[in-house]
Write a protein that binds this DNA or RNA. Structure first.
Lengths: 142, 142
DNA sequence: TATTGTTATACTCTATAACTATA
DNA sequence: TATAGTTATAGAGTATAACAATA
């Protein structure tokens, strides 16, 4: 069942790939009772608390948008605001235990679902792809 | 200025890549006075009119969500509803001239912006990447 | 004065459920 | 009855602008 997609320019292929991955991400998030944005927020926090101001950069959101996103996640018991130790204007956002569990489960499910899509890719090609993507594209901070 | 991203599992790399591409897509759409969803809709229509019902599948939206999206795009003069020739319940959605121009310009800008991110990738690697993505991943219809 | 974050406001996007019109 | 699409409703996500508190 090969649907013959003709060879695409790289940028073109990336856009399509990206939309596909987003659909998977959205579908999995939904199954875990999270919006994609909430899921993305939780995943960003999995490695440890992050300041609001850093979060706006990672998520590419205006600060007021982030306020709302964090509000809703906090209301749902997924994250908490921790006062900064010295700067009394600032907060760190941290996962609650429930939030950490949800982040972990959602993350695992996204990976599993994507891996299911990737079964046709040989180990050698997976390695190649991963290396190319990691080194060439993600290595541009922003 | 190499930020040393450690080697990631493929699925992991795809998720990060995808978020990065989405940010570029959103930023470019915005510069062209479109929401990302509107831009995606217009791009889907660039090849010719599409039925509402097909669109819900391509965009992975509920039909009522699509109604709203099309409403707003139509109100902005970007698309029109064309009655189906035989089935009087159905519509084809088509770009207006203005919509086609906007789709074209936005699409070009997205590609250009991504290409700018890809300058560090050698032609050989671009070819490789493109082939891998096209053949292995996008070739799974849905 | 500059920075951190919130509030107020207005849209857009999305889903669910109920509905209309046509097949 | 089934399908194509809309309407009603509610909530989430987003940006802009104005604001408060702290640095």
């Amino acid at each position: 069942m090969t649907t013959t997609v003709e060879q695409l320019p790289l940028a073109e292929a990336l856009v399509r790939l990206s939309h596909r991955v987003q659909q998977v991400f959205a579908e999995v998030s939904r199954r875990h009772d999270l919006t994609p944005q909430q899921a993305q927020l939780l995943c960003r926090l999995a490695a440890g608390p992050v300041g609001m101001s850093d979060l706006t950069r990672w998520l590419a959101l205006e600060k007021s948008s982030l306020t709302g996103l964090v509000d809703r996640a906090q209301r749902r018991g997924l994250v908490v605001r921790i006062p900064h130790e010295t700067d009394r204007r600032a907060f760190q956002i941290a996962l609650t235990d429930a939030g950490a569990a949800r982040a972990e489960a959602t993350h695992r499910a996204v990976i599993a679902q994507l891996d299911a899509l990737l079964t046709t890719v040989s180990p050698a090609h997976r390695e190649q792809l991963s290396t190319l993507i990691t080194d060439s594209i993600l290595d541009t901070p922003r």
